[in-house]
Design a protein around this nucleic acid. Structure first.
Lengths: 140, 140
DNA sequence: GGTAAGCCTGTACCTGGGTACCGGATGCAA
DNA sequence: TTGCATCCGGTACCCAGGTACAGGCTTACC
Protein backbone atom coordinates (compact mmCIF):
# COMPACT_ATOMS: atom_id res chain seq x y z
CA UNK A 1 0.00 0.00 0.00
CA UNK A 2 1.97 2.97 -1.20
CA UNK A 3 0.82 6.56 -1.23
CA UNK A 4 -2.34 6.25 0.85
CA UNK A 5 -4.63 9.22 0.38
CA UNK A 6 -6.17 11.43 2.98
CA UNK A 7 -9.85 12.29 3.06
CA UNK A 8 -9.42 15.66 1.42
CA UNK A 9 -7.26 14.25 -1.35
CA UNK A 10 -9.75 11.53 -2.22
CA UNK A 11 -12.59 14.02 -2.13
CA UNK A 12 -10.77 16.46 -4.41
CA UNK A 13 -9.68 13.77 -6.86
CA UNK A 14 -13.14 12.22 -7.06
CA UNK A 15 -14.91 15.57 -7.09
CA UNK A 16 -17.08 14.87 -4.10
CA UNK A 17 -17.56 16.49 -0.73
CA UNK A 18 -15.58 15.19 2.23
CA UNK A 19 -18.81 14.63 4.13
CA UNK A 20 -19.98 12.45 1.28
CA UNK A 21 -17.09 10.05 1.90
CA UNK A 22 -18.13 9.57 5.49
CA UNK A 23 -21.74 9.30 4.41
CA UNK A 24 -20.85 6.55 1.93
CA UNK A 25 -18.89 4.79 4.63
CA UNK A 26 -21.95 4.81 6.89
CA UNK A 27 -24.08 3.58 4.01
CA UNK A 28 -21.70 0.70 3.35
CA UNK A 29 -20.51 1.87 -0.05
CA UNK A 30 -16.97 2.41 1.13
CA UNK A 31 -15.32 -0.04 3.49
CA UNK A 32 -13.75 1.51 6.55
CA UNK A 33 -10.23 2.56 5.63
CA UNK A 34 -7.21 2.12 7.86
CA UNK A 35 -6.38 4.97 10.19
CA UNK A 36 -3.25 6.87 11.04
CA UNK A 37 -2.04 6.69 14.62
CA UNK A 38 -3.96 9.89 15.21
CA UNK A 39 -7.19 8.48 13.82
CA UNK A 40 -7.20 10.09 10.38
CA UNK A 41 -8.52 7.96 7.52
CA UNK A 42 -5.98 6.69 4.99
CA UNK A 43 -7.55 5.51 1.75
CA UNK A 44 -6.07 3.17 -0.84
CA UNK A 45 -5.64 5.08 -4.12
CA UNK A 46 -8.22 3.00 -6.02
CA UNK A 47 -10.91 4.53 -3.82
CA UNK A 48 -11.02 7.35 -6.34
CA UNK A 49 -11.89 4.92 -9.13
CA UNK A 50 -14.47 3.27 -6.91
CA UNK A 51 -16.14 6.61 -6.33
CA UNK A 52 -16.26 7.13 -10.08
CA UNK A 53 -17.98 3.77 -10.43
CA UNK A 54 -20.47 4.69 -7.73
CA UNK A 55 -21.27 7.98 -9.41
CA UNK A 56 -21.66 6.25 -12.77
CA UNK A 57 -24.01 3.68 -11.28
CA UNK A 58 -26.03 6.47 -9.71
CA UNK A 59 -26.25 8.14 -13.08
CA UNK A 60 -27.60 4.88 -14.45
CA UNK A 61 -30.49 5.21 -12.04
CA UNK A 62 -29.41 2.92 -9.21
CA UNK A 63 -30.08 4.03 -5.65
CA UNK A 64 -27.26 4.01 -3.14
CA UNK A 65 -28.74 0.91 -1.54
CA UNK A 66 -28.70 -0.83 -4.89
CA UNK A 67 -25.14 0.29 -5.57
CA UNK A 68 -24.05 -0.95 -2.14
CA UNK A 69 -25.70 -4.27 -2.92
CA UNK A 70 -24.10 -4.52 -6.33
CA UNK A 71 -20.68 -3.70 -4.98
CA UNK A 72 -21.10 -6.20 -2.21
CA UNK A 73 -22.20 -9.17 -4.29
CA UNK A 74 -19.92 -8.29 -7.20
CA UNK A 75 -16.92 -8.16 -4.91
CA UNK A 76 -17.35 -11.71 -3.73
CA UNK A 77 -18.08 -13.53 -6.98
CA UNK A 78 -19.45 -12.86 -10.45
CA UNK A 79 -23.24 -12.94 -10.49
CA UNK A 80 -25.99 -12.26 -13.02
CA UNK A 81 -27.26 -9.73 -10.49
CA UNK A 82 -26.06 -6.61 -12.23
CA UNK A 83 -27.49 -7.70 -15.55
CA UNK A 84 -30.83 -8.56 -14.01
CA UNK A 85 -31.04 -5.24 -12.23
CA UNK A 86 -30.09 -3.40 -15.39
CA UNK A 87 -32.96 -5.08 -17.22
CA UNK A 88 -35.36 -4.01 -14.47
CA UNK A 89 -33.98 -0.50 -14.60
CA UNK A 90 -34.57 -0.31 -18.34
CA UNK A 91 -38.21 -1.21 -17.77
CA UNK A 92 -38.47 1.54 -15.16
CA UNK A 93 -36.93 4.03 -17.55
CA UNK A 94 -39.29 3.05 -20.34
CA UNK A 95 -42.25 3.59 -18.04
CA UNK A 96 -40.88 6.95 -16.98
CA UNK A 97 -40.32 8.03 -20.57
CA UNK A 98 -43.83 6.96 -21.53
CA UNK A 99 -45.21 8.98 -18.65
CA UNK A 100 -43.17 12.04 -19.57
CA UNK A 101 -44.31 11.69 -23.17
CA UNK A 102 -47.95 11.74 -22.08
CA UNK A 103 -47.33 14.82 -19.97
CA UNK A 104 -45.50 16.46 -22.83
CA UNK A 105 -48.48 15.79 -25.07
CA UNK A 106 -50.87 17.52 -22.70
CA UNK A 107 -48.51 20.46 -22.31
CA UNK A 108 -48.35 20.97 -26.06
CA UNK A 109 -52.14 21.04 -26.12
CA UNK A 110 -52.06 23.74 -23.47
CA UNK A 111 -49.56 25.70 -25.54
CA UNK A 112 -51.43 25.27 -28.80
CA UNK A 113 -54.75 26.29 -27.28
CA UNK A 114 -53.18 29.42 -25.76
CA UNK A 115 -54.52 28.65 -22.31
CA UNK A 116 -54.24 31.65 -20.03
CA UNK A 117 -55.41 30.39 -16.67
CA UNK A 118 -55.50 27.15 -14.76
CA UNK A 119 -58.93 27.86 -13.36
CA UNK A 120 -60.59 30.39 -15.67
CA UNK A 121 -59.11 29.78 -19.07
CA UNK A 122 -60.74 31.91 -21.74
CA UNK A 123 -59.40 30.00 -24.72
CA UNK A 124 -61.83 28.12 -26.96
CA UNK A 125 -61.81 24.33 -26.64
CA UNK A 126 -59.63 24.58 -23.56
CA UNK A 127 -57.90 21.25 -22.94
CA UNK A 128 -57.36 21.96 -19.26
CA UNK A 129 -60.56 20.45 -17.90
CA UNK A 130 -59.52 17.28 -19.71
CA UNK A 131 -55.97 17.38 -18.45
CA UNK A 132 -56.67 14.75 -15.86
CA UNK A 133 -53.79 12.51 -16.75
CA UNK A 134 -53.87 9.12 -15.17
CA UNK A 135 -51.49 8.74 -12.30
CA UNK A 136 -48.70 6.46 -13.47
CA UNK A 137 -48.45 3.00 -11.96
CA UNK A 138 -45.98 2.97 -9.13
CA UNK A 139 -43.13 0.67 -10.20
CA UNK A 140 -42.25 -0.09 -6.57
CA UNK B 1 -72.86 29.93 -0.24
CA UNK B 2 -74.88 26.81 0.29
CA UNK B 3 -73.62 23.51 1.63
CA UNK B 4 -70.17 24.51 2.83
CA UNK B 5 -67.94 21.50 3.27
CA UNK B 6 -65.92 20.48 6.28
CA UNK B 7 -62.28 19.55 6.06
CA UNK B 8 -62.92 15.84 6.08
CA UNK B 9 -65.56 16.09 3.37
CA UNK B 10 -63.32 18.07 1.04
CA UNK B 11 -60.46 15.68 1.67
CA UNK B 12 -62.60 12.63 0.97
CA UNK B 13 -64.15 14.12 -2.17
CA UNK B 14 -60.81 15.25 -3.57
CA UNK B 15 -58.99 12.10 -2.51
CA UNK B 16 -56.35 13.88 -0.47
CA UNK B 17 -55.28 13.76 3.14
CA UNK B 18 -56.74 16.26 5.59
CA UNK B 19 -53.25 17.37 6.49
CA UNK B 20 -52.65 18.13 2.86
CA UNK B 21 -55.43 20.71 2.90
CA UNK B 22 -53.80 22.58 5.75
CA UNK B 23 -50.44 22.20 4.06
CA UNK B 24 -51.79 23.73 0.86
CA UNK B 25 -53.29 26.54 2.87
CA UNK B 26 -49.89 27.27 4.39
CA UNK B 27 -48.31 27.09 0.94
CA UNK B 28 -50.80 29.58 -0.45
CA UNK B 29 -52.57 27.19 -2.82
CA UNK B 30 -55.82 27.38 -0.95
CA UNK B 31 -57.11 30.66 0.40
CA UNK B 32 -58.08 30.60 4.04
CA UNK B 33 -61.70 29.46 4.24
CA UNK B 34 -64.29 30.93 6.55
CA UNK B 35 -64.65 29.34 9.94
CA UNK B 36 -67.51 28.12 12.03
CA UNK B 37 -68.07 29.87 15.35
CA UNK B 38 -65.99 27.16 16.94
CA UNK B 39 -63.10 27.66 14.51
CA UNK B 40 -63.65 24.76 12.14
CA UNK B 41 -62.90 25.41 8.46
CA UNK B 42 -65.87 25.65 6.10
CA UNK B 43 -64.93 25.31 2.44
CA UNK B 44 -66.89 26.44 -0.60
CA UNK B 45 -67.83 23.37 -2.66
CA UNK B 46 -65.66 24.34 -5.65
CA UNK B 47 -62.61 23.71 -3.51
CA UNK B 48 -62.85 20.11 -4.60
CA UNK B 49 -62.54 21.11 -8.25
CA UNK B 50 -59.64 23.40 -7.37
CA UNK B 51 -57.82 20.50 -5.76
CA UNK B 52 -58.33 18.48 -8.92
CA UNK B 53 -56.78 21.31 -10.90
CA UNK B 54 -53.84 21.46 -8.52
CA UNK B 55 -53.27 17.73 -8.80
CA UNK B 56 -53.47 17.92 -12.59
CA UNK B 57 -50.94 20.75 -12.70
CA UNK B 58 -48.63 18.75 -10.47
CA UNK B 59 -48.94 15.84 -12.85
CA UNK B 60 -47.88 18.19 -15.63
CA UNK B 61 -44.64 18.75 -13.79
CA UNK B 62 -45.29 22.04 -12.03
CA UNK B 63 -44.02 22.44 -8.48
CA UNK B 64 -46.39 23.63 -5.79
CA UNK B 65 -44.72 27.03 -5.87
CA UNK B 66 -45.36 27.26 -9.59
CA UNK B 67 -48.96 26.13 -9.17
CA UNK B 68 -49.49 28.71 -6.43
CA UNK B 69 -48.06 31.34 -8.76
CA UNK B 70 -50.21 30.26 -11.67
CA UNK B 71 -53.34 30.21 -9.56
CA UNK B 72 -52.52 33.62 -8.18
CA UNK B 73 -51.86 35.41 -11.44
CA UNK B 74 -54.58 33.50 -13.33
CA UNK B 75 -57.15 34.48 -10.75
CA UNK B 76 -56.62 38.16 -11.22
CA UNK B 77 -56.50 38.44 -15.00
CA UNK B 78 -55.73 36.33 -18.05
CA UNK B 79 -51.99 36.23 -18.73
CA UNK B 80 -49.68 34.46 -21.15
CA UNK B 81 -47.94 33.16 -18.05
CA UNK B 82 -49.32 29.65 -18.11
CA UNK B 83 -48.50 29.19 -21.78
CA UNK B 84 -44.97 30.48 -21.27
CA UNK B 85 -44.38 28.18 -18.36
CA UNK B 86 -45.79 25.25 -20.28
CA UNK B 87 -43.29 25.92 -23.06
CA UNK B 88 -40.46 25.97 -20.54
CA UNK B 89 -41.74 22.78 -18.98
CA UNK B 90 -41.76 21.05 -22.36
CA UNK B 91 -38.10 21.97 -22.81
CA UNK B 92 -37.33 20.52 -19.37
CA UNK B 93 -39.18 17.34 -20.24
CA UNK B 94 -37.32 17.01 -23.53
CA UNK B 95 -34.02 17.36 -21.71
CA UNK B 96 -35.10 14.78 -19.16
CA UNK B 97 -36.19 12.34 -21.86
CA UNK B 98 -32.91 12.79 -23.73
CA UNK B 99 -31.02 12.10 -20.53
CA UNK B 100 -33.07 9.00 -19.77
CA UNK B 101 -32.52 7.81 -23.32
CA UNK B 102 -28.76 8.07 -22.93
CA UNK B 103 -28.93 6.16 -19.64
CA UNK B 104 -31.12 3.55 -21.26
CA UNK B 105 -28.57 3.15 -24.01
CA UNK B 106 -25.76 2.47 -21.56
CA UNK B 107 -27.93 0.04 -19.63
CA UNK B 108 -28.66 -1.96 -22.77
CA UNK B 109 -24.92 -2.16 -23.39
CA UNK B 110 -24.46 -3.54 -19.90
CA UNK B 111 -27.18 -6.08 -20.53
CA UNK B 112 -25.88 -7.10 -23.94
CA UNK B 113 -22.32 -7.48 -22.71
CA UNK B 114 -23.48 -9.67 -19.84
CA UNK B 115 -21.63 -7.60 -17.25
CA UNK B 116 -21.42 -9.39 -13.92
CA UNK B 117 -19.79 -6.86 -11.63
CA UNK B 118 -19.53 -3.12 -11.26
CA UNK B 119 -15.89 -3.28 -10.30
CA UNK B 120 -14.53 -6.58 -11.58
CA UNK B 121 -16.56 -7.40 -14.63
CA UNK B 122 -15.28 -10.49 -16.41
CA UNK B 123 -17.17 -9.93 -19.63
CA UNK B 124 -15.23 -9.24 -22.84
CA UNK B 125 -15.32 -5.66 -24.10
CA UNK B 126 -16.97 -4.55 -20.88
CA UNK B 127 -18.73 -1.21 -21.40
CA UNK B 128 -18.61 -0.33 -17.72
CA UNK B 129 -15.28 1.53 -17.68
CA UNK B 130 -16.77 3.68 -20.41
CA UNK B 131 -20.06 4.17 -18.64
CA UNK B 132 -19.06 7.62 -17.49
CA UNK B 133 -22.14 9.36 -18.71
CA UNK B 134 -21.95 13.09 -18.71
CA UNK B 135 -23.86 14.69 -15.90
CA UNK B 136 -26.87 16.39 -17.46
CA UNK B 137 -26.97 20.15 -17.52
CA UNK B 138 -28.97 21.43 -14.57
CA UNK B 139 -32.02 23.19 -16.01
CA UNK B 140 -32.30 25.43 -12.92
C1' DG C 1 8.27 23.77 18.46
C1' DG C 2 5.03 26.81 16.62
C1' DT C 3 1.17 27.38 13.78
C1' DA C 4 -2.04 26.82 10.14
C1' DA C 5 -4.38 23.67 7.50
C1' DG C 6 -6.64 19.61 7.70
C1' DC C 7 -9.28 16.03 9.91
C1' DC C 8 -12.13 13.94 13.80
C1' DT C 9 -17.05 12.84 15.87
C1' DG C 10 -21.64 14.05 16.59
C1' DT C 11 -25.50 16.38 15.48
C1' DA C 12 -28.48 19.29 12.90
C1' DC C 13 -30.13 20.93 8.63
C1' DC C 14 -31.47 21.07 3.54
C1' DT C 15 -35.06 20.12 -0.56
C1' DG C 16 -40.24 18.92 -1.85
C1' DG C 17 -44.33 17.16 -0.83
C1' DG C 18 -46.48 15.73 2.23
C1' DT C 19 -47.87 12.57 6.83
C1' DA C 20 -48.35 11.45 11.78
C1' DC C 21 -49.18 12.36 16.48
C1' DC C 22 -50.71 14.93 20.61
C1' DG C 23 -53.83 16.99 23.85
C1' DG C 24 -57.67 19.55 23.76
C1' DA C 25 -61.92 21.77 21.69
C1' DT C 26 -66.25 21.34 18.56
C1' DG C 27 -70.18 19.49 16.04
C1' DC C 28 -73.97 16.80 15.71
C1' DA C 29 -77.38 13.40 16.65
C1' DA C 30 -80.08 10.73 19.94
C1' DT D 1 -76.86 16.20 27.81
C1' DT D 2 -74.13 12.86 26.68
C1' DG D 3 -71.08 10.64 23.79
C1' DC D 4 -68.48 9.93 19.83
C1' DA D 5 -66.67 11.52 15.49
C1' DT D 6 -64.38 15.17 13.78
C1' DC D 7 -61.44 19.09 13.79
C1' DC D 8 -58.05 22.42 15.93
C1' DG D 9 -52.95 24.17 16.22
C1' DG D 10 -48.30 22.89 16.87
C1' DT D 11 -44.68 20.09 16.26
C1' DA D 12 -42.12 16.25 14.65
C1' DC D 13 -41.22 12.94 11.24
C1' DC D 14 -40.85 10.56 6.48
C1' DC D 15 -38.08 9.78 1.81
C1' DA D 16 -32.95 10.24 -0.65
C1' DG D 17 -28.84 12.00 -0.91
C1' DG D 18 -26.31 14.53 0.87
C1' DT D 19 -24.33 19.26 3.38
C1' DA D 20 -23.10 22.27 7.33
C1' DC D 21 -21.42 23.41 11.72
C1' DA D 22 -19.21 23.22 16.34
C1' DG D 23 -15.53 22.19 19.26
C1' DG D 24 -11.49 19.71 19.62
C1' DC D 25 -7.46 16.90 17.90
C1' DT D 26 -3.58 15.77 14.28
C1' DT D 27 -0.38 16.58 10.67
C1' DA D 28 2.76 18.98 7.96
C1' DC D 29 5.84 22.44 7.05
C1' DC D 30 9.12 26.14 8.42
Amino acid sequence: MRAALRTGEVAALAGVNIQTLRYYERRGLLTEPIRSTGGHRLYPPDTVALLTVIKAAQRLGFTLDEVADLLDTGRRHPTPDLRRRAIDKIAEIDARIADLTAIRHTLTEVVEAHCDSLTNCTCPDCPLPFATLAVPADPA
